[in-house]
């Protein structure tokens, strides 16, 4: 895949993640909801950065879909979904690192990979999931991100 393909895939994944956080946040208590809000804002900002990068590369960023298949019954499921969303994005950021020689894009991708790996670890720790970390973020098979409903 080209770097532009990777960027387009990242935009789609960030759209799904922003939607997912909007849903899962409602299942969390105040403290955790604030953490979800921070993550939501961060993903919106990253999505906008990647949309700009797609445009700069001459590509067309996909629009968000009307809805995604996300079911969250309780706080535990909400945090598990947050982990899956972050892990899925880690994979896509790492793919971008591996498919570009552009320093600016690489810098963006490394920052994205670090952020998602840290956030996944924070959610695992909060949810009591062990181990809290994975040895090589972005390489472990991620759980599926929410699919369009």
């Amino acid at each position: 895949m080209t770097a532009v393909d990777r960027l387009v895939a990242l935009v789609a994944a960030e759209h799904a993640t922003v939607y997912g956080y909007g849903v899962l946040g409602a299942r969390l208590d105040d403290v955790k909801r604030r953490a979800a809000q921070v993550a939501y804002d961060s993903h919106r900002a990253r999505r906008d950065q990647v949309v700009a990068a797609v445009a700069a590369a001459g590509g067309t960023a996909p629009a968000p879909l009307p809805a995604y298949d996300v079911t969250v019954d309780d706080a535990r499921a909400a945090m598990e979904l947050a982990v899956r969303l972050e892990e899925g994005l880690s994979l896509r950021w790492r793919d971008l690192v591996a498919d570009t020689d552009d320093v600016a894009l690489r810098r963006l991708a490394i920052a994205g990979l670090q952020e998602t790996a840290v956030r996944a670890a924070q959610w695992r720790k909060t949810a009591g999931i062990t181990p809290v970390t994975v040895p090589l973020p972005g390489t472990d098979p991620p759980a599926p991100t929410p699919s369009p409903s």
Binding site: W93, V97, Q114, A117, T133, P135, L136, P137, G138
Partner: peptide, 8 residues
């Protein structure tokens, strides 16, 4: 990049 994310 994976190592950097892991250390973080």
């Amino acid at each position: 990049a994976s190592l950097a994310a892991s250390e973080a």
